[in-house]
Design a protein around this nucleic acid. Sequence first.
DNA 1: CTGTTAGCGCGTTCAA
DNA 2: TTGAACGCGCTAACAG
Lengths: 336, 336
Amino acid sequence: MDDPADHLKSIADLARLAGVSVSTVSRALTGKGALNKGTRARIQALADQHGFRMNVAAQNLRLGRTGAIAVLLPMGPERGRQLADPFFVTMLGCLADALTDRGYDLLLSRVVPQGDDWLGSFIRAGRADGIIVVGQSTQSAALDRAAAHYRPMVVWGAGSADNMHVTVGTDNVAGGVLAAHHLIARGRRRLAYFGAVSVPEFAARHQGFLDGLPDDLRDEVDLVPTAMTPDQSFRAAADYFAAGHRPDGVFAASDVVAMSIMAAAAEQGLRVPQDMAVVGFDDILLARFAHPPLTTIRQDIEAGARALVDLLVRRIEGQNAGTVQIAPELVVRESS
Amino acid sequence: MDDPADHLKSIADLARLAGVSVSTVSRALTGKGALNKGTRARIQALADQHGFRMNVAAQNLRLGRTGAIAVLLPMGPERGRQLADPFFVTMLGCLADALTDRGYDLLLSRVVPQGDDWLGSFIRAGRADGIIVVGQSTQSAALDRAAAHYRPMVVWGAGSADNMHVTVGTDNVAGGVLAAHHLIARGRRRLAYFGAVSVPEFAARHQGFLDGLPDDLRDEVDLVPTAMTPDQSFRAAADYFAAGHRPDGVFAASDVVAMSIMAAAAEQGLRVPQDMAVVGFDDILLARFAHPPLTTIRQDIEAGARALVDLLVRRIEGQNAGTVQIAPELVVRESS
DNA sequence: CTGTTAGCGCGTTCAA
DNA sequence: TTGAACGCGCTAACAG
């Protein structure tokens, strides 16, 4: 069974051993095509007796497919730590599971979006049967251009009516509304939003937040723009508090940002939630164990990953399936 | 340039268009083999004028390789959230970068270690030119069995002299010693260790911790065994404190565990670091922004990833390179 | 039910 | 310097 000497490296070797033709072996091992029960069993027995596995690459070449789905992570200029973002990482794990269940391999590729045709070039290399793009959607022009000629591609992010490409994403506007209603219900009136605004999904969270407020408060909300990394959001929050701002309710565009804000607040002696309520977005693994445990808008990552894969598979099969939105959910803990 | 009609799908199409043979196109595009400067330039121009890219799968089949490295994540029984662990995830990102730099694709595969030959079976499928195994090393028997016949495989984890397989990993014992010395220097005497002990790398951290203590304290250390997830470690810590234990210094086998402990401590009104100093392991992204900012033993994940890839590539090339250890580093913040 | 044959898209001898 | 022919390991149409 694991004698290294008897190394069968192709179905031809196995065919010779079994005294049959290669196509018979092929039929026996794939289970496709008509074949005598007996010979099929005999060949299968022989195969795993010798630990033989067919060469997937050759099989795929012949079938005109690759058996793999590429997950593309377009990287921003701040190359490096991006994949450390707990949200993306969890998404990746769920995608791996969903794709495995469908019989696909997951080809992970971090790409630097540059040149006019980085995506088209990747597509034409034919390394994958389909593409899932995960990242902050600042590349929608490139995505649209590719989507015009290439169908098996789905994108995680903020869908927009005028996108050519299909997306799956949390309803960020609805999430912002949830946060607004919650803070209002907690009696908070001096409000602030922390997060990126140039990236569509975060802009939508901000917009939803404003939408959810009563008219008289909407113009009073502080907008504190910041990159979504722990360092930068910590700095933004520290500066903001140092400048004397004292909001009593804060909505952060992600849990990482929320936790950084709480760290900065603690340094200033601000108590959460007494002096200031904090609401995050994502519900990452550590949110429950933040100090204090973080109230947040939960994204159902697992459902998102499944939806991405379902949609992609349907498009690979030629169906014309379209954009999906996933409802966010308020999770109340002790930070608010 | 992106006219969809002119879709060249093989070098044969391009050859016809250029009025040359397929082998000439092959030579022009790969840059290998002798060829007239002029025709090479002409064919290359024609290729990217039509956005033509060679089929990587066919190229690899012919070259007898796949161009991909598989990253295997053996999953424990607690299927699911494992990949959410910030450490693994960061490692994955760094591996993606390191492999991309070497021209390899990254094939991500979560495997359920079951049956006697899950690894051998994966290997013989020929989906990758090499394998990197990342995970808690409870599978060393299976790894050794595979390593006996299969050379291009490297493992992240705790190397041991009697392993057949080669590993790259942080020196966990040295990390434990660092933690011990630090807590002692802070005047702590009632000590506890939180973490798994059945998994070699965590057992080594525990062992190092004990090694680093003066003889009279070694036997006094509380060992609090717990799985490494936030939920389970939180529960373990809550129970431990509820039982009346009051250590003044704690070493946690990971930052996630450390943060859970601090959350549980806060619920009991224990102050960190005044009542109890806490030292973690890993230095994940959020460690700086924990409350209070977490003192920890830093693993250099980027160096680890680079070492894994270097080692693997060397073994693919036939060299007999062996196990590498990476030195951990104490990062002092406010939790101790 | 099984074997023969012809490719999938590319690299690489061997001749010309 | 270029082209023709063969094969990487496999599947599928067509015979028998």
